[in-house]
Write a protein that binds this DNA or RNA. Sequence first.
DNA 1: CATGAATGAGAGTTCATTCAT
DNA 2: TATGAATGAACTCTCATTCAT
Lengths: 207, 207, 207, 207
Amino acid sequence: MGRADAANSGAISPPATERGRRTRQKLLEAATSEFGERGFHETSISEITRRAGVALGSFYTYFESKEAIFKALVREFSDGVRQAAATGIEDSRDSFEKERDALSAFLDFAREHKEIYRIIDEAEFVDPASYRAHYENTALRIHDRLKAGMVSGDFNKELEEAHAWAVMGMNVFLGLRYAVWARPEDDFEAIPEIARSILTNGLSAPD
Amino acid sequence: MGRADAANSGAISPPATERGRRTRQKLLEAATSEFGERGFHETSISEITRRAGVALGSFYTYFESKEAIFKALVREFSDGVRQAAATGIEDSRDSFEKERDALSAFLDFAREHKEIYRIIDEAEFVDPASYRAHYENTALRIHDRLKAGMVSGDFNKELEEAHAWAVMGMNVFLGLRYAVWARPEDDFEAIPEIARSILTNGLSAPD
Amino acid sequence: MGRADAANSGAISPPATERGRRTRQKLLEAATSEFGERGFHETSISEITRRAGVALGSFYTYFESKEAIFKALVREFSDGVRQAAATGIEDSRDSFEKERDALSAFLDFAREHKEIYRIIDEAEFVDPASYRAHYENTALRIHDRLKAGMVSGDFNKELEEAHAWAVMGMNVFLGLRYAVWARPEDDFEAIPEIARSILTNGLSAPD
Amino acid sequence: MGRADAANSGAISPPATERGRRTRQKLLEAATSEFGERGFHETSISEITRRAGVALGSFYTYFESKEAIFKALVREFSDGVRQAAATGIEDSRDSFEKERDALSAFLDFAREHKEIYRIIDEAEFVDPASYRAHYENTALRIHDRLKAGMVSGDFNKELEEAHAWAVMGMNVFLGLRYAVWARPEDDFEAIPEIARSILTNGLSAPD
DNA sequence: CATGAATGAGAGTTCATTCAT
DNA sequence: TATGAATGAACTCTCATTCAT
């Protein structure tokens, strides 16, 4: 495979010079903004290059196609989410705190990178494989945390994949509402704790 | 309203004949399939009309634009979800059952109308207002059920809007995984009960 | 020729009923307004029928094509101009008055039928033969008046076709400026007299 | 201005290379011929590019739309008329000769650029503002000449705007008849002198 | 590496006209 | 006569991609 890739005539090698690296980076940043603001189909390569301040033709020095730069961004954001969560739970003291802190880190990430929703969501149409991979990988990681919590005794022993998807869905929609569609009156700091209480007690009234 | 509509010269009036009604319906069905299979941007009007078995120009007898038929479908599906849930909870005996049954009805609906995810999700890009309206309205309805459950004593008195979004996110992602991305080995009948247990006890291990 | 026309399968016969006559008239009036406001190409048959309050298909009961109704209007206006001028000079006492009164009648006609310029001018593109015929016929009539004035001794004996075109151009542009593009501050009643003075003395300073 | 233009993302910047300048010029020439022969609505962009020998898409590298290239041509011709007249009267010895020579230059220009009538006349429908501007500016320039003739004592002191429009109309229609619709038997060289005689003595018989 | 002109397939949309009712 | 649905050719415009400089 390595050789096959090298043989792939249209393949693009990483920039060899510092100047090239900077140009590539400017393109990625411009694409993030444009895709985030207008979406994939409403964005043209020429808008990306204009925003990046480079010539139209230069785009193809760094990316094979419009899809290619989009995929690169999806991967970048997918990684960003993973890392944010991983870092966020380093100091958590139990499994419930872990889930709360993972959500909290995710919300922070989403607030700083508002484009993430539009880019990952649009992957459903532009690059379905990335889209599915992102959510399946995320679910796997959550599932792993659930398993750890089962072992530690915090969580019910019967949890399965569906629980991981339920937690993920909760997180994603809380992010949609309180990061992307945040309103001035929202107390967004309270959200992670709300999620934790749901995972701890569900919605039940106290006995 | 009547006059304003009449003044809008390019506006489209509902079909005046039975034949017209049938043609419009055929177009809606063809569009559902095409948008569901290929997505909005990969679908051309001519594919829709070919599938519907009418001439290209006939499309514009019934819809102002590609966006317009898409919006009509989003509204239709958004309504379908609402109705499915409403019907599904008619016989539920308590608030927890209501949530379980609503999810169950939604999963059934999604399994029958696999296109719904692609169409509603793509609304984020094609018609953001519908997309947001769909989720905000759905959250409102869930919130209303939560309030009813608080009054009835089933639910914790502290539930708020965020809880509704959490429940909605859980449902949406369970639908994504177990209706849209269902695998043969899945026991999808068990899903609603899993959701109910989360809402009842969270993920906690029994005391 | 009469028979040949009758044999022409697509040919349209004059309305047989009073109702038909009224519908045809409504179409002509609607077309006058639409062509006058938007021009030939920006006007669609459906706008004409909507304005006339009849069904789209009914248009073809009365006119063979969009060009056909346009031609009918050009002819109507061309005739209107001819008649207005003819009536306007009935009481004129000499050849100079005749020209003044013809212009005056034309200006009145154009003020009442503002659409005339757009319709006759657009004939240059829609039906060049009518356009040319209109101006050549008008020039011929003016030329005839010039000849009469030469015979009566009012006019210089050397006048020829070019003089007729010059007079016509003067009239047409005075109409453009003082009927179609009239400004509130204009003293449009003075215009015919100005034209007469030009035809009488040119622009020369008095000796 | 610079910044405003740059901000207008879809705006078209002047060709940066010599090759670009040539392509733009070829398009203008092809458009002149096509609009002149068929008119604006009967001409398609693809006919223009075919005649220019460039690809369809290249059109939009240089012009924003079919209207845009048309406007550019109207401006060009409007300018051409102005210049032709200005040059034509450089050696005229009095005000009457000036008018004669201006007309003569205009007739020459129109004979060399037969498209001018169709293009300027069609502006009435394609870009009414240019059409009106062309004639109002032309009338202003004629009016200025009339004023100069009043000061010099050649012309009657009472001349006003209407006289300018009358002169312009005369010229335009003499051009229509003797440049655009010229006939073999016409003595077109005599036309400017005829116009001069009208401006000198009107149509009156000599005393 | 950078530039920007050139390409052309492909899309959405319009609308004059026809025709079954 | 009147209706309005149906037709499909034709058009303008977009834009990802290529390539000569």
